[in-house]
Design a protein around this nucleic acid. Sequence first.
DNA 1: CAGCAATGCTTGAGGTTGTCAACCATTGCC
DNA 2: GGCAATGGTTGACAACCTCAAGCATTGCTG
Lengths: 142, 142
Amino acid sequence: MADAMTTRTPAQEAWELLGKLFWEARPRMLRVAGEFGLTPPQLFALRSLDPDEPVPMRALAAALHCDSSNVTGLIDGLEAQGLVERREAEHDRRLRMLVVTEHGAEVRDRLLSVLREVPEPLASLSAADQTVLRDVLRRALG
Amino acid sequence: MADAMTTRTPAQEAWELLGKLFWEARPRMLRVAGEFGLTPPQLFALRSLDPDEPVPMRALAAALHCDSSNVTGLIDGLEAQGLVERREAEHDRRLRMLVVTEHGAEVRDRLLSVLREVPEPLASLSAADQTVLRDVLRRALG
DNA sequence: CAGCAATGCTTGAGGTTGTCAACCATTGCC
DNA sequence: GGCAATGGTTGACAACCTCAAGCATTGCTG
């Protein structure tokens, strides 16, 4: 009966294992942020921005699930490093469009290429398992 | 050729989809922490502690991938709420063993039961897919 | 066994994140 | 024209986080 307390459905166990996977990937993210001279929130912000499509600050705040006033400081930091620029919007002078600079785009590319590296537990799976995993996740999130 | 730039291996695509899954689960974690009167770091700390096995603060710091001095403040907060106690160790008076109180264990149980809830994208998978996902992750992390 | 390096935790300084309320400028609606 | 709504910034305040410094304790070592 003690087992009945700790028994998990397959989905629950999968979710728990995914939690472990992400927790293990955390130190790498922190290290990468440091190497690029960014704080973790700045890294998330730069990752969220699309160099090809400027968005108002409001949109970034929504993407980051945080308050607009918070984004102000984040962008101050990125702007100070020349990675992002505030630009006036065309038809609404209230908006501040966030434009990733050329340098910012380059940094962002290098950043993403590191973050995209598949962590060891997944990388060591067989090719077949990797494909199965992708297909299942496509069905879940695609 | 433009596709060549954005082509991903199955494992890379899976890792990217997992990133999305976790990012979507973040708001719920923040909400839960708030509902239990905890800050996110405090939540992680309480989650890391095993009510059945006290550990020194040093061990918690290692588990949280952070500095010991940071844990001091975290535990101050949990202790103020009566969730955790600092207790002297048996044979080494330098150590402060972290003991989850009875109340803390109860709060922790309720906390975990909410966090363990499988997020919508996974929950909506077929039972077969859920089992496949679990099995693949077991091979990766088990 | 005396000295001293190493360990475990706390404290203080300094910088960043995060929220909220208040504010200013601008826009859109009546 | 008046006025509510929107977008962003600012200031106050709480919390996190790291580093360096400090204290107590432990354990090694000559």
